[in-house]
Amino acid sequence: MSVSINLLLAISMTLGIYLLAEQIYRRAGRSALLHPVIVSIFSIMGVITLLGWDYPQYQRDTQMIHFLLGPATVALAVPLHENMALIRRMAVPLLVACFTGALVASASAVILSDLMTADDVLSLSMSGKSITTPIAIGMVDNLGGSGSLAAGLVLLTGAIGTLLLPTLMRLCKLTDHALYGYVLGLTAHGFGTAQAFEKSATCGAFAGLSMSLTGVVTAFLVPPLVPYWMVWF
């Protein structure tokens, strides 16, 4: 069996850099700015540029890794199922909060982006900014935006959310750990969930729940609505 050297190089480099980035993240005390995904993406961009590769070629060579996003997204059903038990008692208001939050997070970003930048690809990609990356990539690609750009916006949203939200919640006097986590997970997905787990286990579990719920709710509701949010330009 003969496989192109480039393909083997691209996959080994991606795995190697990711594992190194994980080590750096651990040693640096898990700072959100040194998240392994951020470090890996920028290091690989640097390596590709230095080697003179083009992205479409790298994308084809790493197709195997990208493919696993499919089953991994389906697998999110397991933690979602396990976390749903948390909200039995408060199910209706928490679900209403999730629908409201998910729609506001997506619609406001698309409308503002359409008004401020008039860049259609960017505005479409903004629709997935608050949802977990695997779902955002698929949803935005289907919509005609750019999955890669969506991945970047999701990371940016996570970083900004973890910086802004603690202050906002203090101002709003939201101290209940469960509700605090629920807001963090909805607006700042995985980054928010990691921050919530530092506060308490309850906070983290509610963040994980709202992160997965928001991904599902957004993927079902937002695609048919997006055209109505982009009427300005």
């Binding site: 990711y18 995904v37 992205y55 790493t62 696993l68 990356t133 990539i137 750019s146 890669s148």
Partner: peptide, 9 residues
């Protein structure tokens, strides 16, 4: 790890 290739885009 799985969304690194897309992110590099």
């Amino acid at each position: 790890l799985l969304f690194v290739p897309a992110g590099v885009g």
